[in-house]
Design a protein around this nucleic acid. Sequence first.
DNA 1: TCCATATTTAGCTAAACGTCTAATTATATC
DNA 2: GATATAATTAGACGTTTAGCTAAATATGGA
Lengths: 100, 100
Amino acid sequence: MPSDNVFKAISDPTRRKILRLLNGGEMTAGQIAEHFEISAPSMSHHFGVLKNADLIDVRRSGQQLFYSINTTVFEDVMTVLMELFGTGKEPDTISGGDTK
Amino acid sequence: MPSDNVFKAISDPTRRKILRLLNGGEMTAGQIAEHFEISAPSMSHHFGVLKNADLIDVRRSGQQLFYSINTTVFEDVMTVLMELFGTGKEPDTISGGDTK
DNA sequence: TCCATATTTAGCTAAACGTCTAATTATATC
DNA sequence: GATATAATTAGACGTTTAGCTAAATATGGA
């Protein structure tokens, strides 16, 4: 059940780019940050948002934190998207979804 | 080419519900507003955001404005989403997409 | 234990966002 | 023209968000 924070998470271009990068395999926070001209704390903030939305996983190895993409939410997102655009099944009643 | 404002548009639960409603066919601004406990101006604002993202079309008939869903952007959104989660084709280089 | 490195947490600021009320525009009817 | 209805635009307000710097936490090595 993809809640609001998933859509909020992918609504930011920086976070979408992070996801694209992680698509090539897990990376450390520092490696990811190299691809941006944004301070480390700001990057950490974005990691937090993605983590909170269950879009990425973290693993510590020594001093470094390795981030990887988590595709389990992906299917849910696609389903909601298809419902929005009428490609999926027609709802009997407009459920309202997560209005708030 | 779905730009930032498309993702921003669907990041709001009220606007997602509007899209779901329009999925059943075109509706007037007033008819849509009946499904929400939000002032007409606020609803109008949401229509503007969706319109700006090319997610809905408008047509005037008399005093009323009829809104309908526009699915032309849908395919683009899906493509980007699949790219984010690695379901699509692997990019040779991380293009960065619409970082800003 | 002390220092360097990697990353996060805390706290701040400016911009963006969602909402509201009041005023305006557009159309229809009398 | 005057009035009613449908919807928007204008402007204000509180909250959220993305960015920053400074400080804190965690790990590894001398």
